[in-house]
């Protein structure tokens, strides 16, 4: 929180007195909103266990009434970009290249299958986060 405050992404919105110690209430600034927008719009670097970051993005987009399908499309495109590079390397390479590239391709494909399934379940997810 102190880092967010230092970078001007949140500001102190008030101090709440309670039974225990005083609690500071923070509010997101315009710069903070822009930062969140930017983060949501930037695809993740394809990597193992990307799902947790992407899951957070999808839920946050739904909670804030943004287009979650757009996030998934953008991520699919980023994955496909990596897959095109690997496919090209595979076509031009020897058998060892083909095997190594195939291994990476299947991992990226697994991510994408999760993405497609999530895209198909967006309506259900939207209902769940609205509860």
């Amino acid at each position: 929180m102190s880092r967010l405050l230092k970078n001007g992404l949140v500001e102190v919105d008030g101090i709440e007195a309670g039974g225990g110690p005083e609690r500071k209430r923070y509010a997101i600034t315009h710069a903070g909103i822009t930062d969140v927008e930017q983060w949501l719009a930037t695809p993740q670097e394809p990597e193992e266990y990307l799902q947790s970051a992407l899951y957070t993005k999808v839920v946050l987009a739904l909670l804030t009434h943004r287009d979650a399908a757009d996030i998934l499309d953008t991520q699919r495109s980023e994955h496909l970009r990596s897959m095109r590079i690997l496919t090209d390397r595979k076509r031009k390479g020897d058998l060892a290249d083909q095997l190594i590239c195939d291994h990476a391709l299947f991992h990226l494909e697994a991510d994408l299958r999760w993405l497609e399934l999530t895209a198909a379940r967006l309506d259900k997810l939207r209902e769940a986060v609205a509860r």
């Binding site: 695809p43 499309d73 699919r76 495109s77 496909l80 897959m83 496919t87 494909e109 497609e116």
Partner: peptide, 27 residues
């Protein structure tokens, strides 16, 4: 619908609910 097949393409167009999205222009 297979991404490993789509990886042989130069770019992709996504169709959803009858609307298209050209991903090269979208990013």
């Amino acid at each position: 619908h297979e991404t490993r097949v789509a990886a042989y393409s130069d770019r992709e167009v996504v169709v959803r609910d009858g609307k298209s999205r050209d991903m090269e222009r979208a990013i």
